[in-house]
């Protein structure tokens, strides 16, 4: 099954089984079915609970809080992750504040689905990965599964069981990807997915649990990292493992501390800007716990410039497999 189908099936199951679930956003009804076609067919099947909105991100994000207070389970689609900025006041000063500042008299179980990431040539305002920016909002959960997870199931659990305000980040290039399981994973790699509600997928180029290189990342970066793991093995015979948490905030990196003991290199990879990024938070947490002393620690993320439309220029700004390989080989080879 493809990543996009898994999410669509998850939405279908939610709408089919739970009359309090509604799904709305810009351009998501049939025949168009959403800018990335994730919702195709759903408005035909559930015409009363799947609808299009005006281009009004602040209002549609904000309204979800009122709906949630009326015991509805709203899922809002924001077409491009970049457009969540138009709803940041609602996320920062309203949705994530209500439950706490009202002394838990209300709950706002809202899910905001949005497509993030570059490499499609959309340029500066339609290519960003804003997980790091959004992660600075206290109380906002950020879920960003990879194709090594079961995104549809994670989405269902998030909508039904997680009462926090959630951004569900869908990496654009993952949509056509086949989901990977321990049985289908590429030759040379092993996959182990934890049993947490928000699982951590462990992708490894070796059989053992104490790799020389530990890479912590999430979401669509897995597309780069699966190649990096194979290249490290084939070119340098280095053992490496990727930890890919499905939920990157809250995320306690100490959950993966058992992987650090033998690691000579700890690398955090994200497509958000490296400066003030998610990687900085992960590294700081591990460092405060005394787990990084004597290790080579690197963060790889986007450069501090807008994301160019040109493919050649974009490659210079976003993290690349070559950049990751070079960073590692400078230390270990």
């Amino acid at each position: 099954m493809k990543f996009i189908e898994s999410i669509r099936n998850g939405l279908d199951s939610l709408l089919g089984n739970y009359p309090e679930v509604v799904l709305y956003g810009e351009d998501l009804i049939d025949p168009y079915g959403g800018a990335f076609k994730v919702t195709k067919g759903l408005s035909t099947k559930y015409p009363d609970r799947v609808w299009n909105t005006p281009i009004s991100e602040a209002a549609i994000i904000g309204m979800s809080a009122g709906m949630a207070m009326c015991k509805m389970k709203p899922i809002v689609e924001i077409m491009f992750g970049d457009f969540t900025s138009l709803g940041v006041d609602q996320l920062l000063n309203h949705l994530t504040k209500y439950a706490w500042m009202y002394n838990n008299q209300v709950e706002t179980p809202v899910t905001i689905r949005t497509a993030m990431g570059g490499r499609r040539g959309y340029g500066p305002t339609h290519s960003q990965s804003l997980e790091a920016l959004l992660s600075t909002i206290p109380g906002l959960s950020i879920i960003a599964p990879s194709h090594y997870h079961d995104p549809g199931r994670i989405l269902q659990q998030a909508v039904l069981e997680d009462s926090s305000v959630k951004v569900f980040s869908e990496y654009k290039l993952l949509y056509p990807q086949e989901l990977q399981t321990p049985n289908t994973v590429k030759s040379g790699l092993t996959l182990d997915v934890s049993s947490d509600v928000y699982p951590i997928a462990h992708l490894s180029n070796c059989e053992f649990d104490n790799p020389e290189i530990l890479i912590i990342s999430y979401g669509g970066n897995a597309l780069l990292l699966e190649q990096v793991l194979l290249d490290l093995l084939i070119e340098y015979e280095l053992s490496a493992q990727c930890a890919l948490p499905a939920r990157i905030k809250p995320f306690d990196p100490l959950q993966i501390q058992h992987l650090i003991s033998e690691a000579q290199v700890v690398l955090v990879v994200e497509e958000s800007p490296k400066c003030h990024g998610w990687g900085a938070e992960v590294v700081a947490t591990l460092s405060e716990a005394g787990l990084l002393s004597g290790k080579n620690v690197f963060r790889i993320g986007s450069a501090e410039t807008p994301i160019p439309s040109s493919m050649a220029q974009e490659e210079q700004v976003l993290p690349s497999a070559a950049q990751i390989m070079e960073t590692i080989s400078q230390i270990l080879v």
């Binding site: 009122g66 609602q90 500042m101 009202y102």
Partner: peptide
């Protein structure tokens, strides 16, 4: 920033309108 039953307030100008519309929707 008050809340009591079906009464809600917030201190950001205008931001309360979507909440009210969402409640009306509900």
């Amino acid at each position: 920033h008050l809340c009591d039953g079906t009464f809600y307030t917030n201190g950001i100008q205008g931001g309360i309108l979507p909440l009210a519309a969402g409640l009306a929707y509900g």
